[in-house]
């Protein structure tokens, strides 16, 4: 079970770690100061979560968080390509933030019942933060999605561009059936279904 668990934690941690960095690149560069600040908060939360997860891996016999996070080579990372993509313009960053954070909130909601206690505890702990992120994404998407012609068409374009990449968030692990049967995680397939349902709303 240890390999399956490690693979899962690496995947979640690396996604958070990389997207956290991307979010931090908006500092000093946002469309308005309020968004610099919001993206920085999310960056801090994501990198903070990744730290908590790398610390968990430490307990499972991996090296310390700094070594794991900052000295691995690119091919040793488990993140999806979606979180790596350059920020581009604000419309793409916002759409990615919306798609990713919606999935992230659902993932941790599932993890609340994880048989691996540290994951369940972390999920409980960061619930509030994640809620704040999805509220931010929903609010901005709504406002810009009903703003000007330009804002509406930009969001649509970014959404079309992002959706195929977003599927990468749900790539099943080689240990998928083990994770599910051990009750560690309900599985990527189930997560994707919930996510799709949520987006339809």
């Amino acid at each position: 079970m240890s390999d399956a668990l490690k693979e899962l934690i690496y995947k979640i941690a690396d996604d958070q770690f990389i997207l956290g960095h991307r979010n931090s690149e908006w500092t000093g560069f946002g469309p308005m100061l309020e968004e610099d600040i919001a993206f920085s908060s999310m960056a801090q939360d994501k990198i903070g979560h990744s730290f908590a997860l790398y610390t968990m891996l430490r307990e499972l016999g991996e090296q310390d968080p700094d070594t794991v996070a900052f000295t691995r080579n690119a091919n040793q990372f488990h993140n999806c390509i979606f979180v790596e993509l350059p920020n581009g313009e604000y419309d793409f960053s916002l759409v990615r933030h919306f798609l990713f954070d919606t999935a992230e909130a659902l993932r941790f909601e599932m993890l609340l019942n994880s048989s691996y206690e540290p994951l369940a505890l972390l999920a409980k702990k960061i619930r509030g933060e994640l809620r704040y992120h999805t509220i931010h994404a929903n609010t901005f998407l709504k406002k810009l999605g009903s703003g000007t012609e330009e804002s509406i068409s930009r969001l649509q374009k970014s959404l079309d561009y992002s959706l195929p990449y977003a599927m990468g968030m749900f790539e099943p692990s080689p240990y998928e059936s083990e994770l599910i049967s051990e009750g560690i995680f309900g599985g990527e397939e189930k997560l994707r279904e919930q996510w799709t349902k949520k987006l339809r709303k």
Binding site: E25, T27, G28, L33, D36, S40, A43, Q44, I47, F70
Partner: peptide, 30 residues
């Protein structure tokens, strides 16, 4: 002033410094 320090956020050495620097530069924008 957020720019010269901001450029070091992605390259800050280690979690501790990175977290602190992000919060600091965010404060400056605030």
């Amino acid at each position: 002033g957020a720019l010269p320090e901001g450029t070091w956020i992605t390259r800050a050495p280690g979690f501790k410094r990175k977290m602190a620097l992000m919060a600091k530069v965010q404060d400056e924008v605030g």
